[in-house]
């Protein structure tokens, strides 16, 4: 399934990464990475396991600190922010974890209420409830509002995870392996949802995956990571019809649903 055309503002980079280095002990993970994410765009970062894809988005969210290089998010250089400024900036960022990271001692309602109560204290209980119900309805999850995370399927957990980030109306979404561990049909639903979020909530997104169907369906641009930096960047077709050795290997080991 091809995605609908979206408006991308190529003059306005919401994330700008230059010369990013990150290592853990003696292991160099990112070695001089550059990336621009434009307003309204979905960039898919593809790469093998252990190539630093998740490290990249954790650096963008300010969870990890880079060894060198700069990361600008919404015009602010992450590394220069105080903890309070970083907390304010994070209101503009939504992060979907690979394992969804739902708070397992709370119901779905409480999971959504948690960031809302703390970041929008002026909302009345009725307004909060309305906001929760609206976002759950958009995720087709309104019947799960009082369920515990343990009672949800993998796909539902991902949806609740997305709902929990959308409740704060972020400008930027960071998806870490959104289709990992899901069956092809549920993966397709999640891919569709990612596109709907982009359209409806006007978000820009970095999508980390090694699922080529997800990359093809959700990405406006694809960046292939190898040896700590991007070796190929462009549309899905540009990356995989270019003859690049890494891209060829990646393509050959994936099943692509072509339509």
């Amino acid at each position: 399934m091809r995605k609908a055309t979206v408006n991308i503002d190529k003059q306005n980079a919401v994330i700008r990464i230059r010369g990013l280095y990150k290592s853990f002990d003696t292991l160099d993970v990112l070695t001089g990475m550059d990336l621009d994410l434009y307003k309204g765009e979905n960039v898919v970062v593809l790469g093998r396991s252990g190539t630093g894809k998740s490290v990249l988005i954790k650096l963008i969210a300010g969870i990890l600190k880079p060894d060198s290089g700069t990361i600008e998010v919404a015009g602010e250089e992450i590394d220069q922010l105080s903890s309070r400024e970083l907390q304010e900036l994070r209101l503009k960022i939504g992060f979907l974890y690979q394992g969804s990271a739902l708070y397992d001692s709370m119901t779905v309602r409480e999971n959504l209420e948690f960031p809302l109560v703390r970041n929008s204290p002026d909302l009345s209980p009725d307004e909060r409830e309305a906001a929760i119900r609206e976002v759950l309805e958009n995720m087709d999850l309104k019947d799960s509002i009082d369920k515990m995370p343990a009672e949800l399927s993998g796909g539902q957990k991902k949806r609740v995870g997305i709902a929990r980030t959308l409740i704060l109306h972020p400008d930027i979404m960071l998806y870490d392996e959104p289709t990992a561990g899901l069956d092809p049909v549920t993966s397709g639903d999640i891919n569709k949802l990612i596109n709907e979020v982009q359209q409806k909530y006007q978000t820009s997104a970095v999508i980390i995956t090694h699922d080529l169907t997800c990359a093809k369906t959700t990405g406006d641009r694809v960046a292939l990571i190898a040896d700590g930096k991007f070796c190929m960047e462009g549309s899905f077709e540009e990356v995989f019809q270019n003859g690049n050795e890494e891209a060829k290997k990646f393509y050959d080991y994936n099943f692509i649903e072509d339509s």
Partner: peptide, 18 residues
């Protein structure tokens, strides 16, 4: 410990809470 290893604590941090 369980919240830490399942990234729930990190998720709270990312959602701009303390």
């Amino acid at each position: 410990g369980s919240m830490k290893v399942t990234e729930q604590i990190e998720a709270m941090e990312v959602s701009a809470t303390n």
